[in-house]
């Protein structure tokens, strides 16, 4: 399936950076476009539903998406995502600190990405 860093494949990693945080059994994932012009693209493609589908092995609960146009950023609050949470989880990464890169592994449609690049010129 996906080979993340080859020339033809676009993943979120190519256009955005991310940070993971935890509160109990809830995972927070914030997503920031390198170029603010890509914020619209992120809003369009990174819906709570698509992120939920992409992270189906990780997030067992609901995902709520917040938009922060000032930064700009998308912020995903993912419930029931840390196998019980930092204190009692048997996961190797009970905080879920590595999971920002699970989000960045998500594929995005190449054509809209190219359009966004064109719009900048």
């Amino acid at each position: 399936m996906a080979a993340f860093y080859t020339f033809n494949t676009k993943t979120l990693y190519d256009i955005a950076h991310a940070r993971a945080g935890d509160k109990g059994n809830t995972l927070t994932l914030s997503l920031f476009p390198y170029n603010p012009k890509d914020f619209e693209l992120l809003k369009e493609q990174c819906t709570a539903e698509r992120v939920s589908e992409h992270l189906s092995e990780v997030v067992r609960g609901k995902i709520t998406r917040y938009e922060l146009p000032n930064l700009p950023a998308l912020h995903f609050v993912c419930e029931n995502a840390l196998l019980g949470g930092v204190t009692t989880s048997t996961a190797i990464d009970p905080h879920g600190k590595t999971l920002s890169y699970a989000l960045l592994a998500m594929e995005i449609d190449v054509e809209p990405f190219r359009d966004a690049l064109n719009n900048q010129q």
């Binding site: 950076h17 940070r19 945080g21 927070t28 914030s30 920031f32 917040y66 912020h75």
Partner: peptide
């Protein structure tokens, strides 16, 4: 970039 990432770190409803 570093400030944006930290602003939302571990925040539930911003």
């Amino acid at each position: 970039m570093t400030a944006k990432e930290q602003l939302l770190y571990e925040v539930m409803d911003p």
